[in-house]
């Protein structure tokens, strides 16, 4: 028998990281006007510190982790800890530095302002 044990050794680690809580996509509303794109996302029970909004090369990622504290024995449970996660493609004309997000009553409101060049302009007609 071979002395080599490295052939027999098995890797006991999980190569893919598994997340312990389920990931769900939050419901969103998306609106647009001449100045900005506005996104509302329902994230009940998520506190401000647990939300991240990142934008990378035209891909906007919203994540929010909900941790619910319960006391006592559960009688019924229809919702639990979840990770809200959703990706969006945003046009390159968004002014990334001007993005601002407000969380109120479990709804995240994200304002994505359009860059100056992308806003529609009224062109004045001069009298000849």
């Amino acid at each position: 028998m071979s002395e080599r044990s490295d052939l027999m050794k098995r890797q006991e680690t999980m190569p893919d990281a598994t997340s312990e809580i389920p990931a769900v996509a939050p419901l969103v509303d998306i609106y647009e006007n001449d100045d900005e794109i506005l996104l509302h996302a329902d994230m009940p029970g998520v506190i401000r510190d647990d939300i991240t909004v990142s934008i990378d090369n035209g891909k906007l990622t919203l994540t929010g982790t909900r941790k619910i504290e319960t006391t006592g024995a559960a009688q019924w449970e229809e919702f639990g800890n979840v990770e809200y996660r959703r990706n969006f493609s945003v046009p390159q004309t968004i002014d990334v530095a001007g993005i601002n997000a407000v969380l109120k009553d479990g709804v995240l409101r994200l304002h994505l302002p359009k860059s100056e060049a992308a806003r529609p302009k009224q062109i004045e007609i001069k009298a000849a």
């Binding site: 509302h40 029970g45 006391t71 009688q75 449970e77 919702f79 479990g106 709804v107």
Partner: peptide
């Protein structure tokens, strides 16, 4: 939940019950 309303959790802590309801934006 089959159009019957928002999701709820109920737990029993001995001397009181605790009900949590998801009501985003309200």
């Amino acid at each position: 939940v089959a159009q019957s309303g928002p999701k709820t959790n109920l737990s029993d802590a001995g001397d009181h019950l605790e009900l949590k309801v998801e009501v985003p934006g309200m």
